[in-house]
Amino acid sequence: MNIFRLAGDMTHLMSVLVLLLKIHTIKSCAGISLKTQELYALVFATRYLDIFTDFISVYNTIMKLIFLGSSFSIVWYMRRHKLVRRSYDKEQDTFRHFFLVLPCLLLALVMNEKFTFKEVMWAFSLYLEAVAILPQLVLLQRTKNIDNLTGQYVFLLGAYRAFYIFNWIYRYFTEPHYVHWITWISGLVQTLLYADFFYYYFNSWKNNVKLHLPA
């Protein structure tokens, strides 16, 4: 474990907590894409298949349970909770996430570390996580006023993977044979997708104006 990875995990945890806080306290999911939340639930479900077979550490297991539990409960809230679901913007959140899942699955069948079920599912989860934010970014472009919690949620979600990139660089230089192109390329693409969001988020923070993405 290194400081970059710990910072990344904590930032990721914060993003999930910010979202749960928003949904649980003000019972609103305005501006949040259910499609992205469903994709994240699928990412964790396919990433953590080994949660009960390969024990890494208490920290690792607890974090996996938190990410699995929170992502599925957020989807449940947005689909089932009578108050929360009312604030869900179904008309605007129209990204057909099936067109993200299928290419990622096909790519995972071709590009993987080993052609076994677990390895293919693992590669699939990395490719899917890289693009899972797209429905959310599209929704942000459409909804004019982005509330602070939603902006913070997306920012933290993007920042966590950026920390992971520093973690991979650190591990590459400190651990022999630590080379994982699938993880690195997926993580880089994922972070680049946030580039313009980061740009507008930073500017809105600098000029102290409401976050507003150009149409």
């Binding site: 690792n60 990410f67 973690n167």
Partner: peptide, 10 residues
């Protein structure tokens, strides 16, 4: 070892 690398990252 043929075991695929241990996925120690989240």
């Amino acid at each position: 070892a043929d075991e695929s690398f241990v996925k120690d990252e989240l």
